[in-house]
Design a protein around this nucleic acid. Structure first.
Length: 122
DNA sequence: CATATGACGATAT
DNA sequence: AATATCGCCATAT
């Protein structure tokens, strides 16, 4: 069963930002949510990907969680996402974690600094 | 209208 | 360090 995301400015902005993530970089759910206007709307981002990442041809595999790991479970897309990212040059350590200092996409450092959306200083 | 859900995130225990 | 709980958001039922 497929779901249609209804008209929502927030949802539209989320999808717009997701499409901007360049190959070889990753973004977090919360980061995309922040860029789209809600610093704490990460759950909606996951729902959007769950419902229409295929239909809208979104680079869904470039979205990971804040800890730098893949949120999908083994057997439910984890391996596929890891394969896609590795094909783009994203490296995983022995704990299947991505170094956000190296691979996190930072489209506008000024915005992040001013809004204090601290994704990078941990 | 009320509740449940999810590929989340931060905080509390 | 590992869970548990709560907050948030749009959608589903």
């Amino acid at each position: 069963m497929t779901y249609e995301v209804q008209n929502s400015d927030f949802t539209d902005r989320v999808k717009k930002w997701i499409k901007k993530i360049p190959s070889g970089k990753v973004a977090t759910y919360g980061q995309i949510s922040s860029l789209a206007g809600h610093f704490n709307g990460a759950r909606q981002v996951s729902w959007i990907l769950h419902s229409c990442s295929a239909k809208d041809k979104l680079p869904w595999h470039r979205i990971i969680n804040q800890r730098g790991t893949i949120s999908l479970k083994p057997g439910s897309g984890f391996e596929k996402q890891k394969t896609l990212l590795e094909a783009e040059g994203v490296l995983f350590d022995k704990h299947n974690r991505i170094d956000l200092d190296r691979f996190l996409w930072m489209p506008n450092e000024t915005i992040f600094a001013e809004k204090k959306w601290c994704f990078f200083d941990k």
